[in-house]
Design a protein around this nucleic acid. Structure first.
Length: 412
DNA sequence: TCTGGGGTCCTAGGACCC
DNA sequence: TCTGGGGTCCTAGGACCC
C-alpha cells in the first residue's frame, strides 16, 4: 500500500494564472514576478502566494505587500478570489477521485490518496495524475510518493514545480536528513529557535538525538517530531465522513482601530450572524463561546465561556460575546475581532426553563426565517435594523462556503 | 514598514471534589 | 490549623498547519 500527496504548485497564483489565460490574457502570471495579495488600504496587505520568478526575487509568502514591492518594484499583484480557488480545488479532487476512493482533502490545495499496489505502479500513477491535471485543468502539481502520509508530504515539497518525488523509508537518510530542520512538517519558527540553541540544525540532527531527552524537553510534541524526523507516521488517510469538525469561527481585521464598545458590538453582531448561520446549516449547536481580540500593537488575547446548554441562536451567542467583551476589554484600540463556537452537540435536545423557553423559541423562529430568506434571495436580502444604515456589512467574516472539513488534526 | 483568515492540538494552572 | 494525593473540568495562551 502506498500514499500519495498531491500539492498544487503556488495554488492561488497558478489558479489565477490559468483563469486569466482562459479569459484570453496573453500573459502567464507564472512566467513573471507576480503574487496574490490583499490591499494595504484595508490592512489586508500580505502576500498569500507568489510565482517562482517572484520567489527568485526573494519574495516570501506571508510578508507584507510593502516589503514585497521594495524587493521587486515591478511585481504584479492580484487580489484573492476564493470562489475561484474552491472551483479549482473541486476540479482537482474530481480527477483524483478517478484513481482512489480513499482521499483526504487536507487543505484547499492538498490531498492525500491511498493506493493499493506496488511501488512501481504508484510512481506511474503519480505521473499520470500530474500530467492529467496539467492538461485538463491548466495548472501543475507536485506529487509525493511514499508509504505514509508524513513522508508523502515531505516528498511533495522537495523540488517544485510539476514534479513527482519518492521518499520511501530507505531514502529518508539521503533525501530528508540533510534538509534544514524548519522544513520538517510541524517544526515551526518557535521550535526551530529552541532546537537551534541546542545545536540541532538539520532534520538528521533531530533524528539522531535521544528521543527520551527530547520528550523530557518538549513533551508529547518532542516525541512526535522525533518520529517525523525518522520518517515514522501511522496516521490514516481520513475520509470526509470520518472527519469531525470541533469548532467554527470567523474573524476580521478592520480597516481602522475600533475604540468604542458600541462599534465593537456592531462587529460582534455581524460576525455572530455569520457563525450562527454556519452552525444552523451544519445542524450543530455549541456550548463554548470564544472571543478573541488583537490590539493595534498586535497583542492578542482570548476570553471564552463554557455554557450550561448548547445553542445555535444568533441572539444568545451575541449576548454572551458582549459579556465576554465587557469582561476583558480595557480600552485598547482593536485591530482584529474574532469569535468562535465549539463544544458541539450533534443530535440535540434542549433543556429550557419555562420563561427562558418563550423568549428562546421566538429567537429560534427569527433565526430560521432569516436563514430561509438568505438561502433563497441571498445574504443581503434581509438584515438586522442595526445594519440598515449601510455603514457595515450585516454578515462579516467567511471567505466562501466550502462545506467540507479540512486539516483533520495532526494525526497520531 | 506593516503584518489575513480558518482551523487543530497541547499544556499549565486553578477550582473543586473525594 | 494544616496536611496528602488523584481526578476532572475550565480557561488562557501558545504552537502548528494551509
Amino acid at each position: 500500500m502506498a500514499i500519495m500527496h498531491v500539492d498544487a504548485n503556488s495554488a492561488y497564483l497558478s489558479w489565477t494564472a490559468a483563469f486569466l489565460l482562459e479569459k484570453g490574457s496573453s500573459i502567464d502570471l507564472r512566467d513573471i514576478p507576480s503574487a496574490i495579495g490583499g490591499t494595504q488600504a484595508t490592512r489586508h496587505g500580505i502576500i498569500l502566494a507568489r510565482s517562482i520568478p517572484a520567489k527568485r526575487k526573494g519574495i516570501q509568502t506571508g510578508e507584507t505587500v510593502t516589503e514585497a514591492l521594495q524587493k521587486c518594484p515591478g511585481l504584479v499583484i492580484y487580489p484573492p478570489n476564493y470562489d475561484l480557488y474552491l472551483l479549482c480545488s473541486n476540479a482537482m479532487v474530481e480527477i483524483l477521485g478517478e484513481y482512489s476512493d480513499k482521499i483526504q482533502r487536507y487543505s484547499i490545495d492538498e490531498c492525500y490518496l491511498e493506493w493499493q499496489g506496488n511501488d512501481e505502479e504508484v510512481i506511474e500513477v503519480a505521473h499520470e495524475i500530474r500530467q492529467r491535471i496539467k492538461r485538463q485543468l491548466g495548472f501543475t502539481v507536485n506529487v509525493g510518493v511514499s508509504h505514509n502520509k508524513l513522508l508523502a508530504k515531505m516528498a511533495s515539497e522537495l523540488e517544485k514545480p510539476n514534479r513527482v518525488h519518492t521518499l520511501f523509508p530507505w531514502e529518508v537518510e539521503e533525501k530528508m536528513w540533510p534538509l534544514p530542520l524548519r522544513e520538517l512538517f510541524m517544526v515551526g519558527h518557535a521550535t526551530e529557535q529552541k532546537l537551534k540553541r541546542l545545536g540541532i540544525h538539520t532534520i538528521g540532527d533531530l533524528a539522531r538525538c535521544d528521543s527520551r531527552w527530547l520528550k523530557a524537553w518538549l513533551k508529547s510534541y518532542g516525541t512526535m517530531i522525533w518520529k517525523y524526523a525518522n520518517g515514522q507516521d501511522e496516521s490514516p488517510v481520513l475520509l470526509q465522513q470520518d472527519m469531525v469538525q470541533k469548532g467554527i469561527g470567523n474573524s476580521m481585521t478592520i480597516s481602522y482601530d475600533v475604540v468604542s464598545e458600541e462599534d465593537a458590538r456592531a462587529y460582534l453582531l455581524s460576525l455572530t450572524e455569520r457563525v450562527g448561520l454556519r452552525l444552523r446549516r451544519m445542524g450543530v449547536r455549541g456550548s463554548l463561546v470564544s472571543l478573541w481580540l488583537k490590539t493595534d500593537t498586535f497583542v492578542s488575547f482570548r476570553h471564552q465561556r463554557q455554557l450550561q446548554d448548547h445553542t445555535d441562536s444568533t441572539q444568545e451567542i451575541y449576548e454572551i460575546l458582549c459579556q465576554l467583551f465587557r469582561e476583558c476589554w480595557q480600552g485598547q484600540p482593536l485591530r482584529q475581532i474574532g469569535i468562535g463556537v465549539g463544544g458541539f452537540q450533534r443530535n440535540f435536545y434542549r433543556q429550557v426553563s419555562f420563561w427562558d423557553g418563550k423568549v428562546r423559541e421566538k429567537e429560534e423562529r427569527l433565526d430560521c426565517a432569516m436563514d430561509q430568506i438568505r438561502g433563497r434571495y441571498g445574504e443581503g436580502s434581509v438584515m438586522r435594523a442595526r445594519f440598515a444604515d449601510g455603514a457595515r456589512k450585516p454578515l462579516e467574516g467567511g471567505v466562501n462556503e466550502g462545506n467540507y472539513i479540512m486539516m483533520g488534526g495532526y494525526g497520531r
